[in-house]
Simulated scan of single mutants.
Amino acid sequence: MNYSNPTQLQAAILDWAGTVVDFGSFAPTQIFVEEARGPMGMGKWDHIRTLCDQPQVAECYRQVFGRTPTDDDVTAIYERFMPLQIEKIVEHSALIPGALDTIANLRQQGIKIGSCFGYPKQVMDKVVELAATHGYIADHVVATDEVPNGRPWPAQALVNVIALGIDDVAACVKIDDAVPGILEGRRAGMWTVALICSGNALGLDYEGYRALSSDNLACERKRIHAMFEGSRPHYMIDTITDLPEMIADINKRLANAEMPQTS
């Protein structure tokens, strides 16, 4: 048997908040202060650990408890965090405008829909349940506690590849609104698409995004493009509604024997 490059995409691995649901990615941040947006996209225990390692947060903790946060402290915060997180998910479960039509477009092209997020399964189950009431059901879902390491490691994306029966990682595209999710896709050997305006980076709801002046939007795009630059996404677009054009371009590049790992 000889190896041959894939010639078209077989799967899209979608993030959740800021990508398909919850324009602005508010549910993961509402329990904490605004600093929570910094390490967005990581598994939630790692997210909390990273927050606690920030000097200003560690110092506030030391002033109250006489020490900086240990891993046991992080676990205790995490366990308190989960029930509150489920409450916020219910408040921010609406689909991003145009998401269903875009996903239907992908399915019509024979593209399977995988998904992963930084939530553990107990929270992810609620996200999936709520999304189904709005008409969105992914072909496969992987929670962060179902793999040894969550994002930015590639495990969740690769579990989707296996579960969906995809024969080559280069036939997959990872779509995400956070840097760890783009790194996940890159490390998994996939094409990657960063979402600039619908997620954590811009941090506005749909109405706030639509209300931005063209000059302000251009400034925000420039800022967010710079933020993503180091993770090397293959594409950067505003929202998931812009995805079909990128899918068409990736298919052209695959047909020309171009691979994501060399781009």
Rank of each mutant, 00 (worst) to 15 (best):
G181N: 07
D15N: 00
P260C: 04
G199Y: 07
H140T: 11
G165S: 05
V147P: 10
A255R: 03
M246S: 05
T102L: 15
Q156W: 08
T239N: 02
V128T: 09
V179F: 10
D167V: 11
P154K: 04
G185T: 14
Y3Q: 00
V147D: 06
I240K: 03
T29E: 02
A17K: 00
P97M: 12
D73V: 08
A132R: 14
I240E: 04
A178E: 12
I196E: 12
P69D: 05
S213F: 03
T133F: 13
S4E: 01
T75H: 14
S115F: 09
D145M: 07
A163N: 13
A12W: 01
D46A: 09
D249E: 09
P55W: 10
T50P: 06
D167C: 07
A138L: 07
Q54G: 08
I77A: 10
I89Q: 14
H225Y: 05
N5I: 01
D72K: 13
G135Y: 08
S115E: 07
I13K: 00
S263G: 07
F23V: 00
F228L: 01
A201F: 06
L254P: 02
A58H: 13
G18A: 00
G66E: 09
D125L: 08
G18L: 01
E129K: 05
G66I: 09
M82E: 15
Y136D: 06
T70M: 09
I77L: 15
R232M: 06
Y209H: 03
T192N: 12
A94F: 15
L183K: 13
S25A: 03
A131Y: 08
G165Q: 04
E34Y: 03
I237G: 01
A211T: 02
P148W: 07
W153M: 13
G114D: 05
I166R: 04
G199E: 11
Y119P: 03
I113S: 10
G98S: 15
M190R: 09
A131E: 10
R186Y: 14
Q63D: 12
S263H: 12
M236V: 02
V142R: 05
N105C: 15
E258I: 04
T29W: 01
L106D: 14
H47T: 05
G24Y: 00
E35C: 03
I96S: 13
K174F: 13
W45Y: 12
K112C: 15
Y119L: 02
I175W: 06
D139K: 04
P55R: 09
R223G: 02
A211E: 04
P69R: 09
S198R: 04
L217N: 01
L183H: 14
D242G: 02
V161T: 08
Q261P: 03
L195N: 06
A99L: 11
A178Q: 07
F81Y: 15
M82P: 11
P83C: 12
D242C: 02
D15K: 00
P244W: 03
H47L: 13
E207F: 03
R67V: 12
T133Y: 13
Q56S: 12
G43P: 05
G199K: 08
L243A: 04
G185D: 11
P152N: 12
F228N: 01
M42W: 06
D167K: 07
A36C: 03
S231E: 04
C219F: 07
F23L: 00
S198H: 08
S214I: 05
K222P: 02
N216E: 09
I196S: 13
I182R: 10
Q261R: 11
F23A: 00
